[in-house]
Amino acid sequence: MKEQLVQAIADMEEDQAMELTEAMLAADVDPQEILDACREAMTIVGQRYEAGEYFLPELVIAGDMLTAIGDRVKPLLQSQTAGSNKLGTVVIGTVEGDIHDIGKDIVGFMLDVNGFEVVDLGVDVPAAEFVGKIREVSPQVVALSGFLTLAFDQMKATVDAISEAGLRDSVHVMIGGAIMDESVRSYIGADAYGADATAAVKLAQGWTGGK
C-alpha cells in the first residue's frame, strides 16, 4: 500500500491519497511509514517540478496533501523521530516592507523536500530578526526573498546587519524574487541569486556539499 500512496500523492490523486492513508491506518501500518511515503512522494513531485512537468498548482496541491496527511498521522506517532540526516539549515524570509510570500514559499517547499531544515521567518522580516535567527540556529544558508524594488535596499541592509553582527562568514546568502539579477546580487553583497526554486536548491546543495 505504501507504494500506492507514493504514487497517489505524486500523481496528484488527492482523494485516493487520503483513502489509502486511512486504509493503512486501519491495517495498523506504522504511521512513520506513511510519513516516509509522503517524503518519497515529495521527492518525485520536486523532480517533476524541476523537469518542468509540474508547476505551482501541483506544488500547492502537494503541500495541501502533505498537511492533511500529517495532521491525520502525526498525533498517532509513538515518538517524534528527530531531524534525520538533514543536509543543512536554511533561514528564509521576505525582507522588511515586502509582504509577498508565494515565491518564498515555493523555494522553502523545494528546499524542504530536498532534505533541508527550513526555518521560515515569514514576510516583512526586519534585518534584526534575520540576525537573531542566524545566531539561534546557525544556518549554512540565508535566503532573502523580495518582489519589489524596495527589497534591493532592504536586502542590502539585511546583509550589512549580518556582517556587522560578525556572522557574514558563517553563512551563504542567496537572494530571489521576480526582478533579481546579477547586478542586484552584487549591489546587495549576496553570494548568489537564483532565478527560480530549482536554482535555489542547487545553490544550497552546492554550499552544503549535498549532491
Binding site: T149, F152, I179, S183, V184, S186, Y187
Partner: peptide, 9 residues
Amino acid sequence: VPNSTLLTG
C-alpha cells in the same frame, strides 16, 4: 530596461 539597472547601474 531592467529595473535593477535603473537602480544599481
